[in-house]
C-alpha cells in the first residue's frame, strides 16, 4: 500500500479526518465539525462550522440557541469536503441521528455515532452502509445485553398503571429521543390518554410534533399548586434528574420507572431506586452489534466508546481486525 494517510485519527478533540480537515462529534470547540446527532456529549456548542442533518441542526439551535456555531451546513446527498466525499445516513437512534460515511483515498469509513436497529417510531430507521472501516459505538457491548422487544416493556408499564390506579407512574426518560420514543410506544399500544411531561421535555416534544411525529396530547406536569390526587393513575415523563428534585414531591405515592437499556441489570435498577424497570434502549445490543459487523463485513472495526473489551474479544474470536479508539468524553447515556 502507498503511504496514504489514515482516514481518521483519534485526537483529544475527537475523531479527526486529515483529508477533509474536520472532526466528527468533537468534544471541544474546533474549526469544522460533523455531528452525528443532537445528544449533548456528541453535539457541543462553539464550533466554527457545523455540518449535520437539518433536524440535528434544529435540535442544537433549540438547546444552545441560534448562535451555537458560526456557520452551518445541512447534510444533503454527497458533499465534497477537502479530499473526501461525505454523506449522512439514518442511524435510528434519535430524531435527526445519522451515521457519517466518509469516502477518500484510503477507502470508505462509516462512523455510526449512536445507533439501534430496533424500530423506533420517533425517527427514521437505521440503514446498512457498506464500508471498509466501521467505526462503531459499544455502549451495550456485552453478551448479557439482549434487549427485549420494547413493546413488551410498555405492556409492563400499562399493566402497572392498571394495577395501581391511585398511584402516579413517573417514567425517567432523557429529554431527546427516549422521551418521545416512550410516548410513541405508548400511543402504538393504544394508550390515548393525555401524557404529562416535565418542563424540560416541552421544547423537544414540540419539535417532534412539528416534524410530524404524532405524540398525541401532552400536558405539562409542572402545575405548582396541583393537588397530589390530580396525578393519580397518570403517566408522567421526566428526565431522571428530576426525581431528585422537589418536583417529584407533588405526585401521589409515585411508582418510579426508568426507561433505559441498563435496566436489564437488577443491581443497576435497584441502585437507582427504580420500582419498575423498563428495558428500552436506543443503542445496538450485543446481537445487533455483532450482526452489524458480520453483515457489513468491514476490513476493520474501530470501537469508539463503551465496553470495547468484549467486542474486541469477539472480533478476535471471529478473525476480524479491530482496534479500540478509547475516545473520552462520551457518556454511557447522556443526562
Amino acid at each position: 500500500m502507498p503511504a496514504t494517510p489514515p482516514p481518521l485519527i483519534p485526537c483529544p478533540e475527537g475523531l479527526y479526518c486529515p483529508e477533509g480537515g474536520f472532526f466528527v462529534d468533537p468534544v471541544r470547540p474546533v474549526a469544522r465539525a460533523l455531528i452525528t446527532h443532537g445528544h449533548a456529549d456528541h453535539a457541543r456548542a462553539g464550533h466554527g462550522a457545523v455540518m449535520a442533518t437539518r433536524q440535528t441542526l434544529d435540535i442544537m439551535a433549540l438547546r444552545y440557541g441560534a448562535d451555537f456555531t458560526q456557520s452551518r451546513q445541512v447534510a444533503e446527498g454527497i458533499s465534497q469536503i477537502g479530499g473526501v466525499q461525505v454523506s449522512f445516513h439514518p442511524a435510528g437512534h434519535v430524531l435527526g441521528s445519522a451515521q457519517i460515511r466518509i469516502a477518500g483515498a484510503g477507502g470508505t469509513v462509516v462512523v455510526t455515532g449512536d445507533y439501534t436497529r430496533t424500530p423506533n417510531a420517533a425517527c427514521a430507521p437505521w440503514e446498512p452502509v457498506p464500508c471498509d472501516i466501521l467505526v462503531t459505538e459499544a455502549t451495550f457491548a456485552l453478551p448479557v445485553f439482549r434487549h427485549p422487544d420494547p413493546r413488551d416493556e410498555i405492556a409492563k408499564l400499562l399493566a402497572s398503571v392498571a394495577a395501581f390506579p391511585d398511584r402516579a407512574h413517573l417514567v425517567g426518560a432523557y429529554a431527546l429521543g427516549k422521551a418521545q420514543r416512550v410516548i410513541m410506544l405508548l400511543r402504538q399500544a393504544g394508550y390515548d390518554a393525555p401524557i404529562y411531561i416535565h418542563g424540560a421535555l416541552q421544547k423537544l416534544c414540540d419539535y417532534h410534533i412539528a416534524q410530524g411525529i404524532p405524540l398525541g396530547e401532552l400536558r405539562p406536569a409542572t402545575v405548582a399548586r396541583g393537588k397530589k390526587g390530580d396525578f393519580a393513575g397518570a403517566i408522567i415523563l421526566a428526565p431522571p434528574s428530576a426525581f431528585a428534585a422537589t418536583w417529584a414531591q407533588r405526585f401521589p405515592d409515585p411508582v418510579i420507572c426508568f426507561a433505559s437499556g441498563w435496566m436489564m441489570v437488577r443491581a443497576r435498577a435497584r441502585q437507582r431506586g427504580v420500582e419498575l424497570p423498563l428495558v428500552i434502549s436506543d443503542h445496538v445490543d450485543w446481537p445487533q452489534l455483532t450482526q452489524t459487523i458480520a453483515e457489513l463485513d468491514p476490513a476493520e472495526t474501530w470501537v469508539t466508546h463503551g465496553r470495547e473489551d468484549a467486542i474486541l474479544r469477539w472480533c478476535e474470536m471471529h478473525q476480524r481486525k479491530a482496534r479500540p479508539l478509547r475516545l473520552v468524553g462520551y457518556e454511557d447515556e447522556p443526562e
Binding site: L142, V265, A267, R313, W314
Partner: peptide
C-alpha cells in the same frame, strides 16, 4: 473472557 467481562459488570 466474554463471560468474565459480563460477570464483572453484572455482579
Amino acid at each position: 473472557d466474554l463471560f468474565a467481562l459480563s460477570y464483572d459488570f453484572v455482579g
